[in-house]
Amino acid sequence: MATVNSKPTRQLAMVFDLNKCLGCQSCTIACKTLWTDAPGMESMWWNIVNTLPGQGTPRGAFTHGGGYKDGKPVPGTFPSLREYGEAWDFDHQATFGDGERIPLHPRNRDGSTPEWGPNWDEDMGGGEYPNSFFFYLQQICANCSKPACLEACPREGLYRREEDGIILIDEERCHGYRFCAEACPYKRIYFNPQRAIAQKCISCYPRLEAGVAPACVRQCPGRVRHIDYMDNLEGHPYKLVKEWKVALPLRPDFGTEPNVFYVPPLAPSAFNESGEFDDSRNRIPEGYMRELFGPAVDDALETISREREKVARGEQSELMDILISRDWNDLMGPFTQNPAQLSRPVPEK
């Protein structure tokens, strides 16, 4: 299987700064309108943003197995459609028609009331007042360097692009066995019931090939997402992951070596029982941060805190300059082409 999982010559990487996400779902909608509006893809959200702490999408997002432990595959499950959330129907006529106004509410395909969906627990968060907290977690396919999905497929239905490490599903080879979806510990692979094939985020590779950043990156009003090749020593991913070591993989214990990294959220200090700030404690429990990002999160948060304080004192900080990215184009590495300036082929009728 070396032909489909050989090490790429370059690896594309992204960094998402969890301190900046607004939870506006612009990335989600940009992706949805671009890639998953075809029949059979109604309930697919290749990009999701969930409130944490929370169950995530699908429900219990990180509890369905997959990935590796001690180098061996971990058996996983593929959650049901309702655990991800169906594509709901809305009876707009009942709400906006001439008759009695019925409040708009979603319905599953069989008419039942949904019990789960994308970012279902948006307003929940964690902690207890006054130490309640929440943040948003964005997820796409992380193009893992040890991709459990690709290695699980018995028929080489997935492959890794040699030029950038993007992992794609070969829809001609995919027979819809769904071992890939079971094996992905992040549950970022969907099933198209109409075509009986698996589908997932493609990192907007047709845009990348035209020099355009992925839709989720370019549409983000919060400037959360940084993209570049990891071998660009001046690129943001290299700087944030390798040099400053403030961007970390999500759930590194899953063992798949993802190439999407996260700048962990630096919450305010916790309140003590007197209602005073207790600077010895972060409002987001350290244990929760370590569960999500591994033990390296302690040093990462300390570095971010230290560099913030430098800027507060009026000093310069390369790290803060990168994270702020005053020039929007700096986020996008070599993919700064404005898609509106590209000529597009006219679709054949």
Partner: peptide
């Protein structure tokens, strides 16, 4: 004989 370590393990 299944050509997938995942399938064999799972």
């Amino acid at each position: 004989a299944q050509p997938s370590a995942y399938v064999q393990t799972a």
